[in-house]
Design a protein around this nucleic acid. Structure first.
Lengths: 350, 350
DNA sequence: TCCAAATACGTTAACGTTAACCTTGGATGA
DNA sequence: TCATCCAAGGTTAACGTTAACGTATTTGGA
């Protein structure tokens, strides 16, 4: 904190008014003369006064913080959600407090505990999977809790998300529709990577629904899966299931890694092998060939989450019938299948 | 903030002790009996008490916040710096406050102003370019100011960065070394994208140093340049300077976009055209061919910045001779050239 | 002309926690 | 046996801002 901090008291003395008048000068308060306000503001400039939000927040019992907990910021999808969320909340005067779990539920619990001490107005978590203690903390926090990027079977409170399993089924349907049958899955098997695991489960379910064997499962390492791991997984897949005609990947980085491995081996995509990803990363739209993928609408998630929070915290909002309990809000995000070059043209059975 | 907040006062009443004793129970304070502490902690659990850091921070005049201002979080390089920085600072009990400028100096100024009101312990900015008012705000903030990801000619205070111009010269040297002469540059021309512009300037200077013409400059759009813009820029370059044998790109996304455009056109990289990027993104290490690039050591920047902050704020640090003014610290990060497949083998003049 | 209402301030107390200092009842040692 | 010390607490006041309320002074309408 600044060593020599000029406070409102100093300003008041210099302007020969009360501290309250100074306070009013910095607010949209009409019960202060225009000239007085201007004089105080000019004086503030001169004395180098900086408004102390921490004191104001403390006094008002309102921090204007929103805690956002995510696995990692080093992921284009999460980054986009956070970008939009932060920007939108900033418009409402709120500041996001970011925390990273490193894909560990234990760290998530510790983070939630820490975050709650900062008295945020709301807390946003990624995924619907938490430790029992984390759930308890969230439930008793007394502030809006929003789970995102998932469609929890038993939500804590509000939800802005989608079913990863369903989205993957969209990919499988697309491949089956194009005539593919011998389909492998790359990714998601390890420990705390619940989104990856849910995508794998969705793959298995979708294959079963089509009467196809879903035993071509190739794991990648613990989350986050890198492009390199995608390449390695494809190599492993070719070794174990050489007659595979299409691969569904748990993420675009995995898919792109797999694509590069094909390029190195002279395997033509999609002629010899089709590849589908997940996430609609920038790379999917420009790689050669372009990757078929699922767009989970990360900016939509960020936007809807921000707007939900602003609405929940808006004191001027029209109270519903039951004054205190409006009930949790569940916003389902519509993922979009983006069919592209890497899963080829529809040409009968393959 | 939680509707019904249990305070230390409530806890004190329940435990039949003074508020101060409760406070001590939550600190590493030895002047409290082990049994009393345990009793209070258990009671806290029961009553659902949550420690209020905002009050503690206010009372202590210490927020444990560090403001970090960057162009965008949706950039793997910045994201990595922030990831490491946040994680490292969290070890010291500090929380990062993130702000995004969207590559606009005007927004940077507004952000700095807002951030300073939160009374952070230190402020980290990206780049050495600021509006005059922003500079003034930083200089008078009374807290450590660290400029990163750049090597400012006139630093505000501390610096953890590198010269983008020099780094690009490393790329040019590498290309010239491999025998390339007709070299184009893609990227960096627009408004507030100073890092891109500095890289372009570095390119021009390096070419001049080698006695080569540096007139093959192809701009991309305003920052951040996308892969798609990289592809478009390459197309434009081929049109304008068809005899080009190598392209230096202001970033890896641009370089990868250019690479895909080559693939689509049947241009063999590096046989027909060499491509070099900047940033050592994941994609550079796995694309086919792999991209020659510059690693600006983003995690190193984050780590060194975090450690610098922790050291500057550590009250137990040995005071230097002059008690108050140690003088600004300038940490130069060593970028690394990563030569790879996209700039081919050294085979004489091209 | 006179009173009510509006305008432009000032006063008081409080938000939850903690540094600094004070108090008490043993234990310790000579 | 008594001064001394320590462990384990308690008291007081303060961090900077603002909601709520109080008080002059001016304004305007009948």
């Amino acid at each position: 904190m600044a060593r020599t901090s000029v406070t409102m008291k100093d300003l008041a003395k210099a302007a020969d008014v009360s501290v309250m008048t100074v306070s009013r000068a910095f607010k949209a308060d009409k019960s202060i003369g225009a000239d007085t306000r201007e004089r105080i503001l000019r004086l503030a400039e001169q004395l180098g006064y900086v408004f102390d939000s921490t004191a104001a927040n403390f006094r008002n019992q309102r921090t204007d913080f929103v805690s956002v907990i995510l696995p990692s910021i080093n992921n284009a999808n999460f980054a986009e959600t956070v970008d939009v969320l932060s920007t939108q909340l900033a418009l409402g005067g709120m500041q996001v407090l970011l925390g990273y779990t490193g894909y560990s539920l234990a760290r998530e619990e510790a983070l939630i505990d820490q975050m709650l001490r900062r008295k945020p107005e709301a807390i946003v978590v990624t995924g619907g999977q938490h430790t029992p203690d984390a759930r308890k903390l969230l439930a008793k926090a007394g502030i809006p809790v929003i789970e995102t990027w998932d469609w929890p079977q038993d939500p804590v409170q509000h939800v802005v998300g989608f079913s990863n399993a369903e989205a993957i089924q969209g990919v499988v349907d697309h491949l089956v529709d194009r005539g593919y049958a011998r389909i492998s899955f790359l990714g998601g098997e390890q420990g705390d990577d619940f989104r990856g695991m849910e995508r794998r489960a969705g793959f298995v379910a979708a294959m079963a629904r089509h009467g196809l064997a879903a035993d071509r499962l190739v794991p990648t390492g613990p989350a986050p899966a890198s492009m390199k791991e995608g390449a390695a997984a494809l190599a492993l897949m070719l070794d174990r299931f050489p007659d595979t005609r299409a691969v569904v990947c748990a993420s675009d980085p995995i898919a792109f890694g797999a694509l590069t491995e094909c390029q190195r081996r002279g395997i033509d995509v999609p002629r010899d092998l089709a590849i589908a990803g997940f996430g609609a990363y920038e790379i999917a739209a420009i790689s050669h060939p372009r990757l078929t993928t699922i767009d989970p609408m990360p900016s939509e998630i960020g936007l809807r989450t921000a707007n939900l929070i602003l609405r929940l915290l808006d004191p001027t909002a029209p109270e519903p019938e039951a004054p205190e309990q409006e009930g949790p809000i569940r916003i389902r995000i519509d993922w979009k299948l983006i069919p592209s070059e890497s899963t080829g043209e529809s040409t009968g059975t393959r």
